[in-house]
Structures are given as C-alpha cells and as structure tokens.
Amino acid sequence: MSEEALSTAVYRTLGGRDYRFQLRLGEMRELERLCNAGIGAIWRRMAMLEFRVDDLRETIRLGLIGGGTPEPEAEAIVRFSIDARPVNDYFDLALAIIKAMFEGVRPKKPDGTDQSGVPETSAPSMSSAAPQDSAPDKSTT
C-alpha cells in the first residue's frame, strides 16, 4: 500500500449537523492569541487535562472557521451547541481537532471511512486523554 498524505481536517456532528473542522495557520495563530499560549502548550494542556475553557471553545470555533463555516455562523454554533453544555460533551471534539492538526488523519471516502476502510472512531475521552509520560504522544497515526 502506498504512503498517502494525511489531512488535518476532522468531520464531526455538532448540534445535529455535520461539519468540517480544520485549524490552518491563521486559525492556529488566532487560537494562540486568544488563549495566550503557543499551540503546543494548548495541546499539552488538553492532553494533561489542565486546559482552560477557551482552549476548548476557541479550538472548536476556529476549527469550524478553518473548515469553511462563515465566522458569524461559527460563533452562533458554538454559542448554542457548546457554551451551555458540560465540558465533557465537547472535550473530545476539541481534542480531535487539535490532534489532527499535529498528527494528521487519513482523508475520508464518501462512505465515511478512511482510506484503510476503517470507520472513524471518536477521540479519547477526558478520562483517557492524558498520555502515560509528561509529553503528548506523537507516535499515534
């Protein structure tokens, strides 16, 4: 099997609709500015469960924008689908978005499977997000 290019886009359902989430360079820089931390520090805070609420909220909002959702719509989606929900309801989504930006994900086929034919699974939950050692695990593909 040939080596394929990985994508940084994540496809998930939020508020009953399917969306594309992606952090591009501009969204990463804005995330760093809003969270007052470098992108690596934000990812580490999530992985170590030492995140701030805006680490999660802004990752999702900016991921929507990077995925093609207009900025006002992205803000409205987050306001109504994230802001009033328990953190555990959207932690997995924020982690999947930032993890895809660091590690990449296999591009999707129209049937929702990746190029290996395996259906997409959800990101680790808050209870299993922290890596075994003190740094985020970069060996996962």
Score class of each variant (00 low, 15 high):
Arg12Ile: 05
Arg29Trp: 09
Leu14Ala: 11
Gly15Ala: 06
Tyr11Pro: 00
Arg17Tyr: 14
Cys35Ser: 10
Arg44Gln: 10
Glu27Phe: 00
Leu49Gly: 07
Arg24Pro: 07
Asn36Tyr: 08
Arg33Met: 06
Met28Lys: 09
Arg33Ser: 11
Glu50Val: 02
Ala41Gln: 11
Arg24Ile: 10
Arg29Gly: 05
Arg12Val: 03
Thr13Ala: 13
Leu14His: 11
Met28His: 07
Met48His: 13
Phe21Glu: 03
Ala37Ile: 04
Asp18Lys: 15
Arg20Thr: 12
Ile42Gly: 00
Glu30Leu: 14
Gly38Phe: 03
Arg33Glu: 08
Arg17Gln: 14
Ala47Pro: 09
Glu32Cys: 08
Arg44Gly: 05
Ala37Gly: 05
Gln22Ser: 11
Tyr19Val: 02
Met46Ser: 00
Arg44Ser: 12
Glu27Val: 02
Gly15Leu: 06
Tyr11Lys: 09
Arg20Gln: 06
Leu49Ile: 13
Ala37Glu: 05
Ile39Cys: 12
Glu30Thr: 12
Arg12Asp: 15
Arg20Val: 04
Arg20Trp: 02
Leu25Asp: 05
Tyr11Gln: 04
Glu32Thr: 01
Glu30His: 03
Leu23Pro: 11
Gly40Glu: 15
Arg17Ala: 13
Ala41Arg: 02
Gly16Leu: 10
Tyr19Phe: 15
Leu49Gln: 14
Met48Leu: 14
Arg45Tyr: 00
Arg44Tyr: 03
Gln22Thr: 06
Leu34Val: 11
Gly16His: 10
Leu25Trp: 11
Gly40Ile: 08
Gly40Leu: 10
Phe21Thr: 00
Asp18Gln: 15
Gly38Asp: 13
Gly40Trp: 10
Leu23Glu: 06
Leu25Arg: 09
Gln22Tyr: 03
Arg29Met: 09
Arg33Cys: 05
Arg44Cys: 07
Gly38Val: 02
Thr13Gly: 05
Arg24Met: 11
Cys35Pro: 04
Glu30Tyr: 00
Arg20Ile: 02
Met46Glu: 01
